[in-house]
Write a protein that binds this DNA or RNA. Structure first.
Lengths: 193, 193
DNA sequence: CGTTGTTTGGAATGATCGGTCAACACCGGT
DNA sequence: ACCGGTGTTGACCGATCATTCCAAACAACG
């Protein structure tokens, strides 16, 4: 076994993910990716395959390290109603504070590539379904704790919350206005009463 | 003044709009646009300027002919609560019937280009604001007609409806499931009671 | 019927696209 | 010390990108 890799695979994959996250798949050239990742062009192809393969790996990495980690943290720290409210509040806070206008890579990709690429559509669809399941579980948990009335339909409300959450993600990228975000967050909370 | 144009400007612009609508700005090459519009390459540049200029004109055309026309029709035929409900229902119906997965060009563009292109962001932002104003006006109208309780906050609810509406548009492109759409439409209606 | 100004097709522009290659650098085993 | 194989490298590929140019085709006017 001669010689190991000179770079950390997950580290450079994160760089690629950030590049795609900021600009989208089509608008990000391999030249951009090479510059972002900081390793040689051919090393990228050797390690991750072509652009499409690299994007899929980057998308999976986002799904694990951002979407899944984000939801899991909320699930453990504030199980029940607060997890849902916090989900909206934290997205809003990061959009207003840092001014990061990248939104959510899953949502961005849903619009750009899902209709034309089945493999990517599967990853996006599964990611969004996990968000929906998160809302569903937290509603059920909240009902068990007595925070959320039993009259709330967990399935339907989770689906509506998903719609509202995605809408919020789009607006953080196109109309970053605090009043807009506040109205959406309040509506999300109102759905749980 | 010898010779008039051989093509109808607004007619070929519609073709360009449809091309961008289906695939997005970056993924649509000028080659694709030339094929879609059916006129000569040089005529496109002479009439509409470069790709960016053409896209802006196509986006404006969408805003007038689809977004504005759609809302105006609803406003006149079903003023009040029904206009809002119909807005959601018609989007859902067209997504399920024709199976058109193009969504809304304004929303698609909001994600793809708004963060990186100020001129385009302005058009998108204005279009979305008109949708919000439509919801706002129809809530007020519905309250005047006694269809919607006065306890509903017109401004905040209009903003939340915008978020939900955008979420619906994203989901029609990435997870076209009837149950999802129904939950969102019901939630929209519930916000008005 | 020729002049005039526009549209047209097609070819050609340089730049950039995604992707590949042979040569070199490096290490563990012998 | 040397070899087998892997990682790295920068140069390089044809294809496609947006855009421009040119000469032929054309319709209205004098």
């Amino acid at each position: 076994m001669p010689w190991e890799k000179q770079f950390r695979t997950d580290e450079v994959l994160t760089k690629a993910m950030q590049a795609f996250w900021a600009r989208g798949y089509e608008a990000t050239s391999m030249q951009d990716v090479v510059a972002s990742m900081g390793i040689n062009r051919a090393s990228i192809y050797a390690t991750f395959g072509d652009k499409h393969g690299l994007f899929i790996k980057a998308l999976r990495a986002y799904d694990e390290r951002h979407r899944a980690a984000f939801l899991e943290r909320l699930r453990q720290r504030h199980p029940g109603k607060a997890a849902i409210v916090k989900a909206f509040d934290e997205v809003i806070a990061s959009a207003l504070d840092g001014g990061s206008r990248d939104g959510c890579l899953l949502v961005n990709t849903a619009l750009e590539l899902s209709p034309h690429d089945a493999a990517i559509a599967d990853i996006v669809s599964a990611g969004l379904r996990h968000v929906e399941m998160f809302f569903h579980d937290m509603i059920k948990t909240g009902q068990g704790l007595g925070e959320i009335p039993l009259s709330v339909d967990a399935e339907r409300t989770a689906q509506a919350l998903l719609g509202l959450f995605i809408g919020l993600r789009v607006l953080t990228r196109s109309r970053p206005e605090k009043a807009l975000f506040t109205s959406i967050a309040r509506q999300a909370e109102a759905m749980l009463a």
